[in-house]
Computed example of a mutant assay.
Amino acid sequence: MKAKIALITGGYTGEAEVSFKSSAFVNSQLDHDKYDIYLITVTKEAWYYEDLDGKRHPISKADFTLPLHGDILTFDLAFIMVHGVPGEDGRLQSYFDLLDIPYTSCDALTSALTMNKGYTKAILSDIPELHLAKSVLLFESQRPEALKIVESNLSLPYFVKPNAGGSSIGMTKVKESAQLQEAIDKAFDAENTGKQVIVEEFVTGREFSEGIFRNSKGELVVLPATEVRTTREFFDYEAKYVPGLTEEITPADLTVEQQERAARILREIYVRLNCKGMVRVDFFLENDTDKFYFIEINTIPGQTPQSFIPQQVRAFGMKEGDFYGELIETALQSK
């Protein structure tokens, strides 16, 4: 009997648009002869499965079952493809833990922690060979004095971003003090990002993104890195999802020593944060020092056709469908 997989998409933030594209690509690559795939949309208004006729069938939130054509379908696994809230911050993971349904992503604690950029940096602060840009974490209660806090602790230019956001939504590069207040307000007001803001000193260097996952044999596999070169001021939402604005080189032009150093760092990050499934780590290689600077970790990385992970999987010599199948089989083993 084929395993029934709930491929979950949507979400409660502006990242839902990306989630729909990611889940559509994953669905197109998975082996439907091996798995029964049901695309489940999660929004604030409803959770549902839409059949081929366009009819929506509500999910029972009490036990995550699907009443369909007189039957009650249960799922063997949740393949979570929801970027942002509630798929990347631990909420869905907690829900599935309560129902004893395995899933493909990191667990609830790791998901919640890694959505908080400031807290994540604190956990990773002593990893050998990994460097962290100087930063301040701002809470809503500090909003009236945020400008003073930033300017008394950091030097221009800054990156200002929601502490619990993704897809570069609400992010601004600030090159002069007059821009700072608007950037802070933009980050604080980004929808469903926790009303916290992180401000970091800018690191001048090459930008990279690299995936790592644990396969069904229990091995940690580091994928080839991607270098990001954008015509934008920085790698913002448009640069990520508008064709032609960014050049992405996979595999990246790194020396053997740099590749090995990056792999050591990624494995340590994965273990230190108790990650599961696939994650993606973004980092800078500083121009003058050759030091790797941590940017952030993404526990539900994008899977659109142009996303980094699919590029890296292909560069690794693996088919995307086999890769997603490996994530499913690894998660099923944990049941």
Rank of each mutant, 00 (worst) to 15 (best):
residue 191 E to V: 03
residue 64 F to T: 04
residue 309 I to A: 02
residue 312 Q to R: 02
residue 309 I to T: 04
residue 66 L to G: 07
residue 11 G to M: 02
residue 170 G to F: 07
residue 3 A to N: 14
residue 68 L to N: 01
residue 224 P to Q: 13
residue 9 T to A: 06
residue 317 G to P: 13
residue 203 V to K: 05
residue 188 F to D: 02
residue 226 T to A: 15
residue 260 E to F: 01
residue 215 N to D: 15
residue 216 S to K: 12
residue 242 V to S: 03
residue 238 E to H: 13
residue 213 F to K: 06
residue 86 P to M: 10
residue 120 T to R: 08
residue 62 A to N: 14
residue 109 L to H: 14
residue 46 A to F: 12
residue 123 I to D: 03
residue 132 L to Q: 15
residue 146 A to Q: 07
residue 295 I to S: 13
residue 21 K to I: 07
residue 291 K to Y: 08
residue 259 Q to P: 05
residue 38 Y to Q: 09
residue 334 S to K: 14
residue 305 P to W: 01
residue 150 V to Q: 09
residue 78 A to R: 04
residue 270 Y to T: 05
residue 119 Y to F: 15
residue 244 G to T: 12
residue 178 A to M: 11
residue 233 E to W: 00
residue 87 G to Y: 01
residue 17 E to V: 12
residue 78 A to E: 00
residue 91 R to F: 05
residue 91 R to W: 07
residue 328 I to E: 08
residue 321 G to F: 10
residue 95 Y to N: 06
residue 59 I to L: 05
residue 314 R to W: 00
residue 300 I to V: 15
residue 304 T to D: 07
residue 194 G to W: 07
residue 225 A to Q: 03
residue 294 F to Q: 09
residue 182 E to H: 10
residue 32 H to G: 10
residue 184 I to E: 02
residue 282 D to M: 00
residue 331 A to W: 06
residue 209 S to M: 05
residue 169 I to W: 03
residue 68 L to Q: 05
residue 280 R to L: 06
residue 100 D to C: 02
residue 273 L to A: 03
residue 75 F to V: 03
residue 79 F to I: 11
residue 261 R to K: 15
residue 333 Q to K: 13
residue 161 K to G: 07
residue 102 P to T: 08
residue 1 M to L: 12
residue 317 G to N: 10
residue 297 I to S: 02
residue 299 T to L: 11
residue 292 F to Q: 06
residue 84 G to R: 05
residue 325 G to Y: 10
residue 234 F to M: 09
residue 120 T to Y: 12
residue 89 D to R: 01
residue 218 G to I: 09
residue 330 T to P: 01
residue 138 L to E: 11
residue 268 E to I: 00
residue 229 R to G: 12
residue 9 T to G: 01
residue 208 F to K: 07
residue 193 T to D: 04
